[in-house]
Design a protein around this nucleic acid. Structure first.
Lengths: 110, 110
DNA sequence: ATAATATATGAATAGCCAATCATATTTATA
DNA sequence: TATAAATATGATTGGCTATTCATATATTAT
């Protein structure tokens, strides 16, 4: 496992805003304005995130008039769905974990 | 998808040192000294990471004499293996991506 | 009881990055 | 061509966190 690929992968997918954008794109292609409305992330911030996702090859873009329409990469779509399932399972795990120091976790999560 | 669970999950699994520890534990249970040697991470740093992984329920621990032996949670083991596969596939993707701005990526990856 | 080994804890720091703000660019329309 | 709409870019900053260092605790052996 190469560190560079690991970092690039988790940098792109491990941010909540970017993951939200990806999970929205997993349903259907969206232009920037739609992403802004759906995710609630401010426009220029969305653009920065799209730059990142483009550069990582996680999404592709096409132009239609004034709009730019983003589409998720097929493999990334699968990955996003897998991870959502894992996190859903993790939810039960972390709640039932008898070792978990709730205070530590809530601090960490902030 | 809840933000707290997302953050907790990626916080724990998205760090290269912690992921390295988890992927070592995916092969067999290890005590701290073994983790230090295998991963090359300094001892007190390993302890900090194990604290995090314990609190997240990603690993369990048992005592044997002076040693503390860590074992990976079964579901986490599966997740780690899945992600390694995804990153391996991503390697090909990022290389073949015609949009990728290599300079941006190398900067981002640092 | 003292030394040695294994591991954990606490505090401090330096680097990274998401969000924000201001502004630029592109395209369409009046 | 001037205005509006959609999107991108650049610079700044505040918060977070991995690492490091120093030290503490626990266990075993002499």
């Amino acid at each position: 496992m190469d560190k560079l690929e690991f970092k690039a992968f988790f940098y792109a997918i491990g941010d909540y805003s970017r993951f939200s954008i990806l999970s929205s794109l997993a349903k259907r292609d969206l232009n920037v304005s739609e992403i802004v409305v759906i995710t609630g992330i401010e426009q220029s911030n969305v653009s920065h995130h799209m730059h990142c996702l483009l550069n990582c090859g996680f999404v592709n873009v096409r132009k239609e008039g004034k709009e730019r329409i983003y589409a998720i990469n097929a493999m990334v779509k699968q990955t996003v769905n897998n991870i959502m399932n894992h996190i859903d399972a993790y939810k039960k795990q972390i709640i039932s974990c008898d070792i978990a120091d709730k205070e530590y976790i809530s601090k960490m999560i902030r």
